[in-house]
Amino acid sequence: MGLFKKNPFGHILFIKKWLIRILGAATHRRFRGFNELQIDGSEIIRSLPDRNVLFISNHQTYFADVVAMFHVFNASLSNREDSIKGIGYLWNPKLNIYYVAAKETMKAGLLPKILAYVGSVSIERTWRAEGKDVNRQVKMSDISNIGKALNDGWVVTFPQGTTTPFKPIRKGTAHIIKKYNPIVVPIVIDGFRRSFDKKGLRIKKKNILQSMEIKEPLQIDYKNESVAEIVEKIEYAIEQHPSFLKVIPQEEIEAQEALNKQRAWRPEKTS
Rank of each mutant, 00 (worst) to 15 (best):
D190W: 14
R80C: 04
T173R: 08
G109S: 06
G191T: 09
I177N: 06
I20R: 08
G88Q: 09
K269N: 13
K246G: 01
F166G: 02
R29I: 13
L19R: 12
W265E: 12
K113F: 03
R266D: 06
M69D: 07
T164W: 09
S42C: 03
L245R: 15
K17I: 08
A255Y: 10
L3V: 13
S78H: 15
L150Y: 10
Q60G: 02
R46Q: 14
N145V: 03
G86H: 08
Y62D: 13
R266Y: 11
S83K: 01
D50V: 13
N135L: 12
A116C: 05
P267V: 11
H11N: 11
K103R: 15
I208S: 04
A25P: 02
D190A: 14
L90G: 00
E124S: 11
A116K: 13
Q250D: 10
V247Y: 10
W127K: 13
W265K: 14
I123M: 09
A64N: 01
K85G: 04
S144C: 05
R46P: 06
E130D: 12
M69W: 11
V185S: 00
Q250F: 08
K215T: 10
I12P: 00
F73S: 09
D221E: 08
L201F: 15
S83M: 05
Q262K: 15
A255D: 13
N92T: 12
E232F: 00
K204L: 11
K167H: 09
T27G: 06
H59L: 07
K148S: 12
M140V: 14
K167F: 02
P186A: 07
I234D: 09
V72S: 01
I15M: 09
L115M: 14
V66K: 03
V188A: 02
Y62N: 12
I123E: 09
I143D: 09
A149E: 05
G200M: 03
A25E: 13
G10Y: 00
F34V: 10
L48E: 02
E104G: 03
V121R: 01
F70H: 13
E36N: 13
G10Q: 02
N58R: 04
I203E: 03
I114C: 01
K6R: 12
A258H: 11
K167R: 15
P168N: 04
F55E: 07
I253M: 12
E252N: 04
N151Y: 10
S42Y: 04
K148H: 08
N96E: 08
W154K: 08
I177A: 02
V156N: 08
L209Q: 14
R128D: 04
Q256V: 10
A116N: 12
A68L: 07
A116G: 14
S42E: 02
V121W: 02
N79K: 14
I20C: 05
R170P: 00
P168D: 03
V227S: 01
F73T: 14
R136I: 15
I20Q: 11
P182F: 07
K199W: 11
E239P: 01
D40I: 10
R136M: 11
G10I: 05
G41Y: 06
M1Y: 06
E251D: 12
A64E: 03
R266E: 11
S243F: 06
L13V: 05
Y222W: 11
P249D: 04
Y222T: 06
F73A: 12
R194K: 14
F166C: 05
I214A: 05
N260I: 14
V185E: 01
A129N: 10
K5Q: 08
